[in-house]
Amino acid sequence: MTPGENTLEARMHSFRAKAKDSIFGQDAAIDALAAELSRRLETRSDHRPLAVLLLAGPDRSGTKADLVEVLADALDVPIHQYDLSPPWGEEDALIFGLNPGVPAWLSLQQSLTDHPRAIVALKAVEQAHPTVLSRLQAAWTSDRLVEPSGTEVATTGAIFVLTTELGQGAVGQLARQETDPDRLHVAAVKLLADAGFPIPVLRSIDAVIGLKSHTTGELIREYCRDLAEQARSQGLELADGGIDARIVTDVLEPAIGAYAKGEKRLRDRLDADLVRAKAEGAETVRLVLGDDGILVVPVDRSVQKEPQSSPGSAGQEGSGDE
Score class of each variant (00 low, 15 high):
Met1Ile: 05
Pro3Ile: 12
Pro3Gly: 11
Glu9Cys: 08
Met12Ile: 10
His13Lys: 11
Lys20Tyr: 04
Ile23Met: 03
Phe24His: 14
Phe24Glu: 04
Gln26Lys: 03
Asp27Cys: 05
Asp27Glu: 11
Asp31Ser: 05
Ala34Gly: 07
Leu37Cys: 01
Ser38Pro: 03
Arg40Gln: 14
Leu41Ser: 06
Glu42Ser: 11
Arg48Pro: 05
Ala51Gly: 12
Ala51Met: 12
Leu54Tyr: 00
Asp66Glu: 15
Leu67His: 01
Val68Asn: 06
Val68Arg: 00
Glu69Phe: 08
Glu69Asn: 05
Leu71Ala: 09
Ala72Asp: 00
Asp73Thr: 09
Ala74Tyr: 02
Ala74Gly: 01
Asp76Ser: 13
His80Cys: 10
Tyr82Ser: 03
Glu91Tyr: 01
Leu94Arg: 12
Ile95Tyr: 00
Pro100Ile: 10
Ala104Asp: 09
Ser111Val: 09
Leu112Pro: 03
Thr113Glu: 09
Asp114Phe: 04
Ala118His: 02
Ile119Glu: 03
Leu122Ala: 06
Val125Gln: 02
Glu126Thr: 08
Gln127His: 14
Ala128Cys: 09
His129Gly: 07
Arg135Trp: 06
Leu136Asp: 04
Trp140Phe: 14
Asp143Arg: 08
Glu147Met: 14
Gly150Pro: 03
Val153Asn: 00
Ala154Arg: 13
Thr155Cys: 09
Thr155His: 05
Gly157Pro: 03
Ile159Ser: 04
Thr163Phe: 07
Gly172Asp: 00
Gly172Trp: 06
Leu174Tyr: 03
Arg176Trp: 07
Arg176Tyr: 14
Glu178Ser: 00
Lys190Ala: 05
Leu191Tyr: 02
Leu192Gly: 01
Asp194His: 15
Ala195Gln: 03
Phe197Leu: 12
Phe197Asp: 00
Pro200Asp: 11
Val201Cys: 11
Val201Met: 05
Ala207Val: 14
His214Gln: 14
Thr216Gly: 15
Thr216Trp: 13
Glu218Ser: 11
Leu219His: 09
Ala228Thr: 10
Gln230Pro: 01
Arg232Cys: 10
Asp240Thr: 05
Arg246Asn: 10
Ile247Phe: 00
Val248Gly: 04
Thr249Glu: 02
Thr249Trp: 08
Asp250Gly: 02
Val251Ser: 06
Ala255Asp: 05
Ile256His: 07
Ala258Met: 15
Ala258Cys: 13
Arg265His: 13
Asp268Val: 13
Asp268Ile: 12
Arg269Gln: 08
Asp271Met: 12
Asp271Thr: 14
Ala272Lys: 15
Asp273Leu: 06
Asp273Glu: 07
Lys278His: 05
Gly281Ile: 00
Glu283Cys: 15
Thr284His: 05
Leu289Lys: 09
Leu295Ile: 15
Val296Cys: 00
Arg301Cys: 04
Arg301His: 13
Ser309Lys: 01
Ser309Cys: 10
Ala314Asp: 14
Gly315His: 12
Gly315Ala: 14
Gly315Gln: 11
Gly315Lys: 12
Glu317Ile: 13
Gly320Tyr: 02
Asp321Ser: 11
